[in-house]
């Protein structure tokens, strides 16, 4: 078993190679990309990044994405906290069915909802706003949050609640002062997952926006089809979309394995 480390090492190499290639492309000029094939940039250039940081039609995409993703994280986690508590502590009429129904929304294909969402948000005047995308992403992020938080909360012994109530805490007071600090890591992991699924989603975000709230991913697909394939800028934009994800992973690195098991190990 001395050579066991080879397997993960090869796998990680396989994971990082395409990302390295993207980085490599983003540091080359377009003419170099198309003319010379090389494993590293011959003439290192940051022009592609400069294009993105100076052109508002590019960098506004990042700002839009950030805005709706953070809105979505706040809405999802704050709605899901009391609900997850209810699911983990009480039984009530229809609880199992409600839980299953929530989960089906996590499983439902966004393609089914794209068109009705477009009609719905157009009719109430929310089309092309950040809140529309944030609410649309709640469709799958709220069920997921409830699922993860329920897992974490079930791991907290019930005695904590009971002692607090005996000590005369009201429910909201207990929840904010005692319970939330106890599941802080669970909340962090949930926020991470909401961030992740809202950040990576394209179809709904693209359908629900036109100009003002257009996310970076939609801007990238437009560039692929329209302006004669500027590979260097495209690669640079791709690298810049990976960075926030990498940053967020760094913050939750200690809880990541348990988090991916949705708190259920």
């Amino acid at each position: 078993m001395r050579w066991k480390w080879i397997i993960p090492a090869v796998y990680i190499f396989f994971l990082l190679l395409p990302i390295y290639w993207l980085l490599n492309m983003s540091l080359k000029t377009n003419s170099e990309i198309l003319s010379v094939f090389s494993l590293w940039p011959q003439n290192l250039t940051f022009d592609n990044y400069r294009v993105i940081f100076t052109d508002p039609s590019w960098y506004s995409g990042y700002i839009n994405s950030m805005i709706y993703v953070s809105m979505n994280v706040v809405i999802s986690v704050s709605c899901a906290l009391p609900a997850a508590y209810a699911f983990s502590r009480y039984s009530f009429v229809g609880d199992k069915h409600l839980f299953f129904w929530l989960l089906t929304n996590r499983m439902a294909p966004p393609a089914v909802f794209a068109l009705p969402f477009f009609q719905l948000y157009s009719s109430i005047g929310l089309f092309d706003t950040h809140i529309a995308v944030a609410l649309a992403h709640c469709l799958f992020n709220i069920p997921l949050s409830v699922w993860i938080l329920e897992g974490f909360m079930s791991g907290i012994p019930k005695e904590i609640d009971e002692t607090a109530f005996v000590d005369g805490y009201s429910w909201p007071h207990f929840f904010v002062k005692i319970f939330i600090p106890n599941i802080a890591s669970g909340i962090g992991v949930t926020a991470f997952f909401c961030f992740m699924f809202s950040w990576v989603e394209l179809l709904l975000a693209r359908t629900l926006t036109a100009v003002n709230a257009k996310p970076i991913s939609a801007i990238m697909t437009r560039t692929v089809s329209a302006s004669g394939l500027d590979w260097g800028v495209l690669a640079a934009a791709g690298i810049l979309t990976i960075l926030p994800g990498a940053l967020v992973i760094w913050f939750v690195r200690n809880h990541i394995a348990k988090g991916f098991a949705l708190g259920r190990v």
Binding site: I242, A246, W250
Partner: peptide, 14 residues
Amino acid sequence: LISMALPLLIPWNV
């Protein structure tokens, strides 16, 4: 853990 989680955080179109 970090390098394996990385692909999951990349937007799907990227």
